[in-house]
Design a protein around this nucleic acid. Structure first.
Lengths: 355, 355
DNA sequence: GCAAAACTTGCAAGCGCTTGCATAACAGTT
DNA sequence: AACTGTTATGCAAGCGCTTGCAAGTTTTGC
């Protein structure tokens, strides 16, 4: 009937409410905003009217008028099509915490997997003032792009590895320290052939490896490529790689996995191959996802404080919104010791085995 | 300097581009939209200008003018504060698939945990025309509210249990069938004391329990409350509950858990208590999260086809956007048999144990 | 009983973008 | 040279909401 299909807006508008209440739009607007400028009884009447008609303010119009969005874009640097699933609970938890933290500040979360620079839609749509700021959850293989993006758009916070150059505000766990703690713990337990499982081309993983190397060297060992196994980040991939682990046979007596998911996959493989954990192989993960404590044996891991991270990122972005220019920060990594590492090998000789 | 702080819009606007290019806003708008109405060279010039100035259309203004949002709100019915974390990979996967499916249709995803009816912000903000439609991922304890919401807002799709009454378009796995398959499988394996772990006050879980009961009755057994253990959905809670499992001692020889997370927690508990899986206790989960295949022993489970579910929900909501009124649908549940159930007990007597 | 000081409300001008319609520019026909 | 098509551009209205300012209505003070 009308010119454009899109124009068939059936939505009830503020004007309708105004008409029904016999007042002007201004008054309705103010009433809904809880302004003191509107008489108590008028406000109540309008509120009631709005409620009964299920009226809802059009956020776009509102944001346009207000020049804000009250929305933060949360971005996963996942290569679409390549890495099909996220699957790693770390991400869920992070998103959940982020939503929590942001909605505390009355911000919505726009979730996306396609980074701004990948937009190929012909013509329009570069970024888009659809959000007041953006949070990158992890850098993936796009450290450079993110850094550049952060430079152009003032309101950007990134979770990942950083602090090196002007990459904007980067928040992350102290991965180097985390890796160091993990490896040092295994060494202290008497392990000598410690394999590293992870994809070192990812900035965060690389840092964890760095820490691992530091611990090894500190103990007088030299990290070798033979013990560095390039496990992809997604669990199916991790499984595939670690399937061959038993072929390594006696070559390693411990594993430091770059993520809990990888650790779990490796553990399952080893167990299936008949290896005992921690007796034959000790395992340490990274993240401390909820499941980690509930494996058998429970997984020793390096905890990333996700809640704190989310809150910190939120705080930073709020500060940026206020015009400040906050620096990145590093959250402490904490080693959570559980059964998957067992007691020191020396003690083991005497007593039976774990616990 | 200016009146309101919010008015300090530093953002470059279409007018700026127009001015710079020496054309009108209309032309810029059309050029950016790839309209045929604008001369090739003009378009190129404008595009180049836009790129170099990092100009981005203001989506709010655009959507306002267009009367659309190109956004779908995805809602988790999580009680904020109560159930702190989602943690269940099922949700991540679902969100990831949803993002994928929706962005294929050029829709953004607005993620939220606070349902529209919970808004308590005084005055304004009821729902908000911030999205063209909403998808509920699970019903939680809000089946009624969701149903009512769906009735008022035409564009709503829900994942969960449904089909009973006018709850709008509900998509979900055939939970009853899934529960039935799981229990029947355990029975066929010779198990007789099958415990059910899950919170039956949740619609979906209740359906799974229903299927479980059906299988039991079919085999001439009567489901009893003694074997029904009310495990919460989140993993820590599940762990807490199942910690006492070993006290049940010989009381059960199998477990059907309402989700993989619960199953994993139960498995870890049982293993820690010295029980062998599947020899002493067979375990079946529900969901087939990525981890399920990578446990030791690998978890037998009922697969929910998340990708298909996400695509179906997306298709439904797109249809609704076109004015159609699609019906809900039930996706088939599929039993994925892995090691956590082992071979039939009868065969077991003869050979050693599993695989 | 009247002016001044509250209180309420409405007007109208935007917010940045899209688009129907009018207009200008420039061929291509007779 | 006048006329009709095309094609490229601009005008201006409008999307639904907010808000400074002005106007109207009470209430208060003396």
């Amino acid at each position: 009937m009308s010119k454009t299909a899109a124009k068939d807006r059936t939505q009830i508008t503020m004007r309708d409410i105004a008409r029904m209440a016999g007042v002007s739009e201004s008054t309705v607007s103010r009433a809904l905003a809880g302004s003191q400028l509107v008489a108590e009884h008028t406000r109540l009447r309008i509120l009631e009217l709005a409620r009964s008609t299920k009226y809802a303010v059009n956020e776009h119009a509102r944001n346009l008028a207000l020049g804000q969005t009250r929305t933060i874009e949360v971005l996963f640097p996942i290569e679409r099509g390549t890495l099909q699933r996220v699957s790693d609970p770390f991400f869920v938890d992070m998103v959940a915490e982020l939503i929590d933290a942001l909605s505390t500040h009355d911000y919505d979360v726009l979730l996306s997997t396609s980074p701004p620079w990948s937009e190929v839609r012909p013509g329009c749509a570069f970024l888009g003032g659809r959000a007041d700021g953006v949070i990158f959850v992890g850098q993936g293989r796009h450290r450079e792009e993110i850094a550049e993006f952060a430079r152009d758009n003032r309101i950007v916070v990134t979770w990942g590895a950083g602090g090196r150059r002007d990459e904007g505000c980067v928040i992350g766990t102290d991965n180097v320290r985390g890796g160091y703690l993990a490896a040092r713990h295994l060494i202290a337990l008497g392990r000598r052939q410690i394999a590293f499982l992870g994809d070192c081309t990812l900035p965060e993983i690389e840092e964890r490896y760095e820490g691992y190397c530091a611990a090894l060297r500190e103990a007088g060992m030299e990290p070798g490529d033979a013990l560095r196994i390039n496990a992809p980040f997604d669990i199916d991939g991790a499984r595939t790689v670690t399937v061959g682990l038993d072929r390594f046979g006696r070559h390693f007596d411990a594993i430091f996995a770059a993520s809990d998911m990888i650790a779990m996959a490796a553990m399952a493989n080893l167990q299936a191959a008949g290896a005992r954990i921690p007796d034959d192989v000790a395992v340490v993960g990274f993240d401390d996802v909820a499941m980690a404590a509930h494996m058998h044996p429970a997984l020793t891991t390096v905890r990333q404080n996700i809640a704190e991270g989310a809150q910190l990122m939120t705080a930073k972005i709020m500060a940026m919104l206020q015009g400040e220019k906050p620096k990145g920060e590093m959250l402490p990594a904490k080693l959570i010791i559980r059964d998957s590492c067992g007691a020191p090998l020396s003690m083991r000789q005497e007593s039976g085995d774990q616990t």
